[in-house]
Design a protein around this nucleic acid. Structure first.
Lengths: 201, 201, 201, 201
DNA sequence: GATGAATGAGTCTTCATTCAT
DNA sequence: AATGAATGAAGACTCATTCAT
């Protein structure tokens, strides 16, 4: 019966949807509660019946983003059997993002940058996210390689691929160009083949 | 009458000194003008006689930081002849930083994260800085390798080393641990040897 | 399912019980509806089915407090026959209160202080309470003295004893010490003996 | 050159003047910063350049009131030599107040009632004020009696007179009538004569 | 060059209350 | 009778900036 323009019926969903857009594009500090409520079409007090604080909303958003992000990542990866294809699937995810209007890099990293206290729960969320991505790299992307080498060597490989990935995201955000992604993908491929060939042992 | 060691004579220096500390540790948005003037001991109006705006102060700080940073980087690098030693000199610079109380990653990247408009002059400064670091990698660190390979291959090498470096900084900030630095250094070394051995041709 | 000792079955009772605690300890203005409903375990809308407004709740609480207070006072007084003992019974009631954690003086007086409009029904309730206490002093405490003196002298005695009592309560709250109670009790005793001896006639 | 309607040139004075009126008449909680700034004609931010918080303003007001109050009290007392006249001078001060539009009792007591935490600096101010009044009673009002009796007896007398005084103020506020003042003054006089006649030794 | 005072617009959050179910 | 959701108005306070001296 309710058909408002933002198309999401439940207020808390509309709030998160607005926060998602605004926190990601403008940053946490630069986005005020006023903007969030005006764009989500709820009253200020209504906002606070759904979220105890602005920070709590940020965390709700990050949790949702985490869920969807991991879901999308694993789904894309699972469409390939070959490890190399899986690695490149990770990067093509970013290719799509980077082309969107107003690319802003990794939402998690950006949020962490605005919470200087490393004990902040937001920082913990970001750490958890990054750790989970690392696990996806280990268990879903590179798992085929695990039996081929010593555990510490495998861990080293995982860390390398993962660091290349993160560095590329940052640099792509910084330069607003593709080459960091390309470069990291190429290096990742070479690294893979070297580890596979046993050159690193 | 006040002669503590950190008190600098000229107001504008004291302001930048305070901004340096506060912008880096707390972030740009989370640091108010009031805190800056109170910690630098100047009157509010005096601040605005030295800097036209908060953003201008941020830029002045970044320019100073850029200068000192490149200076320190090139100096450390120039103390070694061997390329491998030079690469490891880059990383040891971060080892020192990461151990300081309240490590906050790369000040430039963090600032860029708070200026969402990619056309902002602050963003330009950050891009310039990162580009300049890339040039240091190419001209001061890896220059010995340049004649050994095709230009595009050399560029690829530079990008790889540089991306590994940036990724490590981010992840060290995120996890507040050493391993990303270690991992990136190791991978850098291997990458070097592979490129040197011509395996990548 | 929740069966803690302080949980009362009927919602309106639980609400008054919470209000009693909170209004008394924190004051009327400083206590929000939210805290009252959260501590009484009822929904916000349920609160308003039982009480038309926050002020109405305050009045309900004061009425209950009035009832219990007078009841307790008269009961304590009635346990003694001697007028002096009865007077001291009034004060020992406060001795017990003053030793409780977070003594806050007279709940009625404190409420009156937060309702600046003297025409407010809350103010009327407080006036009624104080008048009733005065009547207890006249009819239950000092009644033995009434036939001994002219009516206006008796009224004077009643007012004196009662004012000493109220002054002591205020000062005990202010200084958080016993001496005002002690002092007022002593003076009350002396006053009694003087009036009895006819010195005041 | 500046002749604004509120006639006080300096903003901080205008703010305290407004606060004085509003805090006293409406109470602390019921008076918002917005009302204070609108009635004193300063911008919100200007308020906060003069006072760090609402509570700090309340304290500034109480300090000013304390000063003026003690000043006025001692001056009135000093106009009489006879102890009985001095005591009655204390009470006539209240007679004047009580007749003003919107009598609200003792500003200090009312403030204390709104700060439930007895460790609050406001509470400390109120305690200090009341203690100072007690000292005025001892040193300026009853000092003539001091050599006539044992120290503890004198203290007892002081406490009694002072408690009668405070009780009268509260009750006058409560009933909005004169009789508590009359009654307390009469009792004070009798108490004086009894102590003087040595009846209490 | 330096400064204390002033400011409009904004910050996040809470208020007591009402509505639809 | 009970409730989860919604709200306009107000709460205290901070923002980066400007002005008169």
């Amino acid at each position: 019966m309710t058909h408002n323009p933002s198309s999401l019926s439940r207020p808390s969903e509309r709030i998160i949807e607005a926060a998602s857009r605004l926190f990601f594009r403008q940053g946490y500090c630069s986005t005020g509660i006023n903007q969030i409520i005006s764009e989500s079409g709820v009253a200020k007090a209504s906002f606070y019946t759904h979220f105890p604080s602005k920070e709590a909303l940020a965390m709700a958003w990050l949790r949702q983003r985490e869920e969807r992000w991991i879901e999308q990542l694993t789904e894309r990866i699972s469409q390939h059997q070959l490890t190399e294809k899986r690695v490149s699937a990770m990067y093509t995810m970013w290719y799509d993002q980077i082309r969107e209007e107003g690319y802003r890099g990794c939402g998690f990293i950006n949020m962490a940058g605005e919470f200087s206290d490393e004990k902040s729960p937001v920082r913990a969320l970001v750490r958890d996210h990054k750790e989970r991505v690392r696990q996806v790299v280990a268990n879903n992307v590179l798992n085929e390689y695990r039996p081929m080498m010593e555990p510490e060597v495998f861990d080293e490989l995982v860390n390398t691929i993962y660091s290349l990935f993160d560095g590329a995201i940052i640099q792509a955000q910084n330069f607003m160009q593709d080459w960091p992604i390309d470069s990291a993908m190429k290096t990742s491929m070479k690294t893979l083949s070297h580890y596979r060939s046993g050159a690193v042992l």
